[in-house]
Design a protein around this nucleic acid. Structure first.
Length: 575
RNA sequence: CGGAGCGUAGCGCAGCCUGGUAGCGCACUUGCUUCGGGAGCAAGGGGUCGGAGGUUCGAAUCCUCUCGCUCCGACCA
């Protein structure tokens, strides 16, 4: 470690912590063996251990004086959170971007997660008395125009179908101008209007109420800025729509489903959330009250993970949804709507992922235990596969989703693929395990012990018997970890606007450089209208997430208006 | 849609300043050797350098436009 290595100088000259100068050099320059590890060092070491740039310096063992650890992803959360997120989505086999801008291809592993989410949530929706049905993708343009705020809210992001035929013109396929639709159709951004139209026909009497409907569907909102799972032009969701005789009943429904979302998020996704009411400026277009569950991502930003709306009688009046009450009077219904989407998957990734990839809570993992037999392309392989098959059969019988990955890929490669995908438990079985009646396994929630991979050996029968409990423990541990992060990063002692600016950085619009900032809990007087708009403008990139349902005793004056405080709200940057 | 950065093989990148017809590592294929673990050696396959124009004898490289991605802003149940 003597002369200043060239690579180091170049980095400094360019003034950026780039890894451009770290491209591995031809093998001839290195001793064998050492070189293979270089790629793992590349990104991490570029900034910290410039010596590594230069062939001839002891490349591999150190990173800024610390022992190098190999990671399964090419980038860490600390280096660049958005890039890390994309790497997890890609290397975890969750999804890809599609040829159509803003849309995504959900791959089998990602789809498996969505199927688990659907199964768990669908049960809860049915258990609370709702029936599934399906309404069309296309909505007449005139429908969306019925509710004034609703139109305004969605008009800017609507996909519109205007023609129904193509024609061949000079060898090119073009839209046939003669095939113009009399009334354009919009691709649903949400289904209040088309479902309301049906409700209007279905509801005659108080005996028809409450009407409790849900549908699983895709919707389209033409977004300017998209991110896989978090915000895509087309996404999948469930939308519940209900009609009630009075406000109390509708409000109870709204809050009931909010609570279903909270419980689902925490117990199934292991993603702790704070349920609360959105401020007026964040309400759903056409709603009287909007409630949300908000989750804290590992970069400190908030993610709105689900919403539930009390729509009052706005849609009922716009669409003539009326019933005859017991006194024989014609009365407007009170309606609600509520939904969660594929965005939840993005939330799971940013809640549980680590620098080795995804970590899936067992309850939504498509495969909870993956068995990797260490095949050697020899006759003994068959015995090994039989041994694995026996374990598989018993785990299946215990209701565990298990896979034997018998692909003829190198077993080390298979292991790391499952690490990146986030399989909760990865079992590796070699000949010695088989003959000794053992298994060796790794827990994805506790993959490493220092720089080593933490693998455990257990008698086969004990492992099988304890597998369900092990999965429960992993689920609980992932939740506890996320819960500690949420609880530990809500700051409550800010009482002035300048204090808020100081905490989040004076110009909230500036690039924060990935510095973790949690949320701020502040007292406010719950202003509405222009006053609220003014506050929202002043907050710039910060947003008022919600006023938690569970409120501590409120102290102090409103941070914005200095008036009497009414409640606490949470303030954060958000996705 | 405004500001900034970036598009070279599946992934990560070099080459561009100073034009000469494309490289490295990983991954992939084949063979041999290994084998309690992200193996070694050797031989291979894969790229119209995001796209379209222009300058030039010649463009990944220079110029113009365009599309896409990321971040910030605006916007956003």
């Amino acid at each position: 470690m003597t002369a200043a290595p060239l690579g180091f100088e170049a980095c400094i000259v360019h003034g950026r912590a780039t890894w451009k100068h770290c491209t591995p050099l031809p093998k001839a320059l290195f001793g064998s063996g050492a070189f293979a590890r270089f790629r793992h060092a590349t990104r991490e070491c570029c900034a910290h251990a410039p010596d590594l740039h230069n062939p001839g310096y002891g490349l591999l063992r150190t990173c800024g004086g610390r022992p190098m650890s190999k990671r399964a992803l090419p980038i860490t959360r600390e280096q660049n959170f958005p890039d890390w997120y994309q790497a997890v989505v890609r290397d975890g086999d969750m999804a890809e971007t599609s040829p159509v801008r803003g849309c995504m291809i959900i791959k089998p592993w990602g789809w498996g997660v969505w199927e688990r989410i659907q199964a768990e949530l669908d049960t809860r929706i049915k258990d609370t008395g709702h029936d599934n049905c399906y309404f069309p993708l296309f909505i007449p343009l005139s429908f969306i125009a019925k509710e004034a705020e609703h139109v305004e809210g969605f008009a800017k992001e609507m996909a519109v179908v205007t023609h129904h035929r193509l024609m061949n013109k000079d060898g090119k396929l073009v839209v046939d101008p003669d095939a113009k639709l009399e009334e354009p159709l919009i691709v649903r951004p949400t289904s209040e209007t088309i479902i309301g139209d049906a409700f209007q026909r279905w509801i005659k009497s108080y005996r028809d109420l409450p009407l409790l409907i849900n549908q699983w569907a895709n919707v389209v909102r033409w977004e300017m800025r998209t991110r896989l799972f978090l915000r895509t032009a087309e996404f999948l969701w469930q939308e519940g729509h209900t009609a009630h005789a009075d406000r109390d009943d509708a409000m109870a429904e709204t809050l009931k489903m909010l609570e279903v979302y909270r419980e689902f998020s925490e117990n199934i996704l292991a993603m702790p959330v704070i349920a609360g009411e959105k401020p007026a400026n964040e309400r759903f277009p056409g709603a009287d009250n909007t409630y949300s569950i908000e989750a804290m991502m590992q970069d400190g930003k908030a993610l709105q993970a689900g919403t539930s709306h009390y729509l009052g009688t706005h849609f009922a009046q716009a669409q003539n949804i009326q019933f005859q009450n017991q006194q024989g009077q014609l009365t407007h219904c009170h309606t609600t709507s509520w939904g969660v989407s594929t965005r939840l998957i993005g939330g799971v990734i940013m809640t549980h992922g680590d620098d080795d990839g995804l970590r899936l809570p067992p309850k939504i993992a498509p495969r909870q235990i993956v068995i990797v037999p260490m095949l050697r392309d020899k006759p003994e392989d068959k015995e090994l596969l039989d041994y694995c098959g026996g374990i598989e059969k018993e785990l299946k019988a215990a209701g565990i989703r298990v896979l034997v990955d018998a692909k003829p890929t190198k077993s080390a490669e298979k292991r790391w693929n499952w690490v990146r995908r986030g399989a909760p438990v990865i079992v590796e079985v070699g000949g010695r395990d088989a003959s000794g009646g053992n298994v060796t396994y790794m827990r994805r929630d506790a993959l490493r012990d220092g720089d080593k991979i933490a693998s455990h050996t257990s008698p086969r029968d004990a492992f099988v018997a304890g597998a369900a409990a092990l999965l429960d423990e992993i689920q609980a541990r992932l939740y506890a970890e996320a819960k500690a992060r949420l609880d530990g990063n809500i700051i409550s002692n800010i009482t002035t606007f300048s204090g808020l600016e100081d905490y989040f950085g004076a110009a909230a619009g500036d690039d924060e450089g990935g510095v973790f900032k949690g949320w701020a809990r502040v007292a406010w007087s719950k202003p509405e209208g222009e006053k609220l708009e003014a506050i929202a403008d002043r907050l710039k990139a910060l947003t008022i997430r919600n006023a938690p349902m569970v409120q501590d005793k409120v102290q102090g004056a409103c941070l914005f208006t200095r008036r009497t405080r009414k409640e606490y709200v949470l303030i954060a940057r958000a996705y």
